[in-house]
Design a protein around this nucleic acid. Structure first.
Lengths: 107, 107
DNA sequence: GTCAAACTTCGATGATTGTCGTACTATGGC
DNA sequence: GCCATAGTACGACAATCATCGAAGTTTGAC
């Protein structure tokens, strides 16, 4: 319990467009972002409607976190996920809205 | 001149977000789009500032064309490229602007 | 202390893809 | 006709990546 279980979150100023697009190009990750965008509250890693194994899901959450798209923190044994919307919008204006809107339309 | 050398261009209504993001995630292709967005006129395939071989460039242009991002037509031996901006914006509102803006800022 | 739940970490694997060189086609100028 | 220019088509190759299962860790409940 000594160790802090909160993972590292990058400063949005140091996230590149390349990294963001690499994160958003995967349909599973895009689905996670869209579900977060539509949700009224945080969602635990296990609370998403995705069809991959748990280890694959962990991988996707790390990619999204390192791209500055989500913030993660523990509550008990659950890892909760939040969209970093305001910060992200400031760094990449219009991008998240455009992608989420198009993604919603295509599902 | 029997064969029509104009390639097929997809209807934007049949282009998926997935295909668009796969096209925009490559830095060379994104550079092509940004250069087109900044240019006052069409650009031939050989007129871009990219650092890949000709055969690789051909590949990238095909991907962009199939994603509905560019239109290509021959003028003599040159293949000219245009952004399908208006059509694309209608199908994916805000996406091209967001990506091009962020791409310009990161170069 | 014991056990289950929720994730993570660590290889391994299969598919995709960006890259190139070579060969080929079409056009325009001479 | 001949030749240079501008691209395309076709394999081939290397690197990346999404995926999984198995094993490990941390927490909370009993």
């Amino acid at each position: 319990m000594d160790a802090d279980r909160t993972p590292d979150h990058p400063d949005l100023r140091e996230v590149t467009l390349q990294r963001v697009l690499e994160a958003l190009v995967d349909p599973v990750r895009r689905s996670i972002v869209t579900q977060l965008s539509d949700a009224p509250a945080d969602i635990s890693c296990g609370g998403f409607d995705i069809s991959v194994s748990k280890s694959t899901a962990t991988h996707h959450f790390r990619v999204l976190r390192e791209a500055g798209l989500i913030r993660q923190h523990y509550v008990g044994t659950s890892r909760m996920n939040t969209l970093r919307r305001a910060e992200f919008d400031q760094a990449f204006p219009g991008l998240l809205d455009a992608v989420v809107t198009a993604d919603r339309a295509s599902s």
